[in-house]
């Protein structure tokens, strides 16, 4: 590996680390903001998704693997995680006897 690439990679790792710390501080601010629980949850989980993607792509170096591996991993996990969201309507139904009832 040439010295330039080494230095670049080191800088990228440090940048990811700093972005992670800043986004955690932001998350803490969102947790104590005076908004509805739904809005707070959606803002916090948006930040969480951003953090997770950063770790997978840069710290776990998924970007440097073959594109077909990234696609295979995504196809094997993400659809399953999306399908699992089907449980939410039922969880609200148990409490309020109606799905998505406000």
């Amino acid at each position: 590996m040439n010295p330039d690439a080494t230095q670049r990679r080191g800088k990228a790792a440090l940048s990811v680390y700093l972005v992670m710390l800043v986004s955690f501080a932001l998350q803490l601010c969102v947790a104590y903001s005076r908004v509805s629980v739904r809005q707070r949850a959606s803002e916090m989980f948006t930040l969480t998704a951003l953090q997770a993607v950063l770790v997978f792509l840069f710290s776990m170096r998924l970007l440097q693997e073959r594109r077909v591996f990234l696609i295979a991993l995504t196809l094997s996990c993400v659809p399953l995680l999306i399908v699992m969201n089907a449980i939410w309507t039922d969880s609200f139904r148990i409490l309020r006897l109606a799905p998505w009832h406000n």
């Binding site: 949850a41 916090m44 930040l47 953090q51 997978f56």
Partner: peptide, 9 residues
């Protein structure tokens, strides 16, 4: 680390 990131919020 990623699991903890999701667990915290």
């Amino acid at each position: 680390e990623v699991v903890w990131i999701i667990l915290v919020p």
